[in-house]
Amino acid sequence: MARRVPTSRKWLVTIAAWAIGFLIFFPILWTILTSFKTEAEAIASPPSFLFFDWTLDSYREVQSRSNYFLHFYNSVIISLGSTLLGLVIAIPAAWSMAFVPAKRTKDVLMWMLSTKMLPPVGVLIPIYLLFRDFGLLDSRFGLVIVLTLINLPIIVWMLFTYFREIPGEILEAARMDGATLWAEIVHVLTPMAVPGIASTLLLNVILAWNEAFWTLNLTAAKAAPLTAFIASYSSPEGLFYAKLSAASTMAIAPILILGWFSQKQLVRGLTFGAVK
């Protein structure tokens, strides 16, 4: 039950919370604002917040000097591809662990989780050399494989926690009625599992989109997703704040929007059910 609080206190809390929220969000806001400035205005002193000549020049510039949409396309393919592939592998596994648990199910789950704890740098060299020898360096396919594997434990775990909430009696009823395993999955389980699968998909697309160890180390130009593309702005050049801001805004906007829909899943997916 909500407790009654004096209005004055509520206003005080509101002001404090909005001020702090604004402060935390400010770097993002500032990036978005700067992306609409000219390069000269971007470094103007004193800086202007809203009263400048809004322009889309930087966005045009970013696209014309380096094929921005190629990198955007790479990010989409890599994050979506690795998540979908991961789901295809994880759904059956999570299904059977949730509904036909065996003695060792818990051990298997814990072991899967432990693979996620492996620091990427521990396997950097072998993966790099294997990629080099198999011609996978700077290929979207290679990155899809690696990101599938590093996110697979999270996908299995998230699906497992969602599937476990589906009442088992319904499945048994279907089985009594003579439903085959396949019919059970397609007609009974899937409709109930779709929300959980959607949440898992959402969170993992976000994680894969922002992954910045393997994408930086295994790509050069052709297959570079946005994380690696933005890194090319790390070498200072003349005036580039507006261009950097435009490229950054385009890189984070889609995921910022997706992210706001996935707040709840974030807690669930990243704490492996340890916080409820």
């Binding site: 929220g21 969000f25 770097p27 990036t31 989109w209 933005i230 890194a231 890189a251």
Partner: peptide, 21 residues
């Protein structure tokens, strides 16, 4: 939403924005 936003910013963007701007 405002408070959660930074989590969704990719590391390279956040580092370069902080460093330069």
């Amino acid at each position: 939403i405002l408070v959660i936003a930074p989590f969704f910013v990719m590391p390279t963007v956040s580092a370069l924005v902080w460093k330069n701007m």
